[in-house]
Design a protein around this nucleic acid. Structure first.
Length: 266
DNA sequence: AATGGGACCTGCGCGC
DNA sequence: TGCGCGCAGGTCCCAT
């Protein structure tokens, strides 16, 4: 999905567009998107509520309503939000008090909508590890040091470090010149420090460029992100390496496609 | 503890 | 042109 930078982009735009607006109506064509409570209760629970705050936690969007109720949106792989007019392709539509609409778009319908009392009690959120954007070097080191898991797979584990997904993990490992197949505990102190730096810098860069629109992702206005043009390995099998110009390799790790340079990444 | 597979869904691009 | 297949930004669950 939308990884941390894409969700952060949406969050920043949502703050401007929907804060202090009221949800006046709601409909969905795919009620299975609503995970809790029931679809009916969900609708009843959000109608008439004013948006007090918009929060991002890892890859989740959290909309604080009145009475400390929270609308939690997990975009998963293909979800995105489109603000403005009602869109015929929307899986769900939030009608706002200013006459505008927030469309929930999701071609694969794998996303999740929830209404809950305190988002911090959600199981998935309780289990999240520190955010990739602000994990300290010492915590990062501690996370890697005793693990025999492949570094790429470890970085995707949201309970250890949250916010990274399959795009930015590959990019960070490439920039740090670390082979994604290495076990986490094989990294030297120097490599740990470099990887930590590259994770932070790639995420910041991606936020600056409003995320990567590799496939379905768009920002709130329906525009593509600018980051996909800056990606150096994701989806670039057989293209030439940014550093050494030799062709990039694709393998599968943890069931996910993984592109890297077998010459530069040691 | 770590790894692999399948499940959840739809849509796209590719090769034949 | 049409069709079948593999693959896709995430996460959970089960088996070994």
């Amino acid at each position: 999905m939308p990884e941390l930078p894409e969700v952060e982009t949406i969050k920043r735009e949502l703050v401007v567009k929907i804060t202090n607006k009221k949800i006046v109506n709601f409909k969905t064509t795919k009620s299975t998107l609503i995970k809790e409570p029931s679809a009916n209760e969900f609708k009843k629970g959000i109608i008439g509520q004013e948006v007090k705050q918009v929060i991002r936690k890892a890859k989740l969007l959290i909309i604080k309503l009145e009475e400390d109720k929270f609308l939690v949106i997990h975009l998963r792989i293909a979800g995105w939000l489109l603000y403005g007019e009602e869109d015929p392709g929307a899986r769900a539509v939030f009608y706002l008090s200013d006459g505008k609409v927030l469309n929930y778009m999701d071609s694969r319908v794998l996303g999740e909508l929830r209404l809950c009392k305190d988002y911090k009690d959600l199981n998935f959120i309780k289990k999240l590890g520190p955010e990739a954007l602000d994990i300290s070097l010492s915590k990062f080191r501690e996370t890697l040091v005793s693990k025999k898991t492949k570094i790429k797979v470890l970085l995707l584990d949201q309970t250890l470090i949250s916010g990274l997904g399959n795009i930015y993990v590959q990019e960070a490992l490439f920039l740090a010149k670390i082979d994604p197949r290495r076990t986490a505990n094989s990294l030297s102190e120097k490599e740990i420090k470099l990887l930590h730096e590259k994770i932070v810098s790639i995420l910041k860069e991606a936020i600056k460029y409003k995320g990567s629109s590799v496939n379905s992702y768009r920002d709130l206005g329906g525009d593509r992100g600018g980051m996909e043009k800056r990606l150096k390995v994701y989806g670039k099998k057989d293209e030439s390496c940014y550093f050494c110009k030799k062709p990039l390799t694709k393998i599968f790790l943890g069931g996910r496609g993984t592109c890297f340079c077998s010459h530069c990444q040691k």
